[in-house]
Design a protein around this nucleic acid. Sequence first.
DNA 1: ATACATTTAAAGCCTTGGCTACATTTCTGT
DNA 2: ACAGAAATGTAGCCAAGGCTTTAAATGTAT
Lengths: 144, 144
Amino acid sequence: MTADDGAQPTAQSERFQQARAAQAMAILEDYAEMISDLIQEMGEARITDIASRMGVTHPTATKAVARLKREGLAVSRPYRGVFLTDEGAELAERVRARHRTVVDLLVAVGVPPETAEMDAEGLEHHVSEITLKAFERYLDAAAK
Amino acid sequence: MTADDGAQPTAQSERFQQARAAQAMAILEDYAEMISDLIQEMGEARITDIASRMGVTHPTATKAVARLKREGLAVSRPYRGVFLTDEGAELAERVRARHRTVVDLLVAVGVPPETAEMDAEGLEHHVSEITLKAFERYLDAAAK
DNA sequence: ATACATTTAAAGCCTTGGCTACATTTCTGT
DNA sequence: ACAGAAATGTAGCCAAGGCTTTAAATGTAT
């Protein structure tokens, strides 16, 4: 009836699939950024601290770290802190920069800073490169 | 060490928990909106059409509809179309309006329309009421 | 009206990302 | 040095949201 079952995806279904893919990356990104934060602040990232800051229990944090390791983004030895690989650190830095840009843009269009910080946490993972660049241009223009 | 294990959550951990909660609603919102779209366009929403537009297989769509029914957002009889309850229709309408606002705002700050449409699909679920209101004010101001 | 095509349903599998409960290891203080 | 506390690991449970495969119901066309 709608003419595409299993056949070529529509633009719309592609958007949903894209959104789902972004979501799959989101947690990895959050954990990588958190680990990076902790290393900067305290020299190492302990499972307990990661869990506490992410608002999850430590087994959950352990699982997430296992996934990061599987993806080649982190390394760790039993009963020791977690560290990022070069790739992981790079991801964390990109995520951090994007987060700042998103918060800044929200504030620039009139969102209260606290709310901006809150919403950015979920929002940021769905901001594409193109949109990010647009945000940066907008902020640059507004800064002048 | 970081002083809050299981104790009161930090502002940061609360943000993450909030983002996770928003994510849990996201799929429900997407399906509700899609069902609403289909009903408007074709008078009813068939499982096959929902699946095709969402870019998933029909068993997956069936499961999603089951959740909607469980949450009191939709109703359906075996081998018949899916319909929204008042609550479901209201949710769909809110989601649709928010989607439009988000796309408009993205375009207003310089994001190409096609990209705006793409990113909004994931973004919208994390835009709080407060942020949405700010977007609307911004768009109003820019319209003048 | 009956055979064939399409649609829906049902069952069962997988991964993710939460959780609790329990075991083990490391750290710390006396 | 050793006991108790704290941190980490491991196992197993759950729900969500994908999937494929198989079965049943519905719709359609000769």
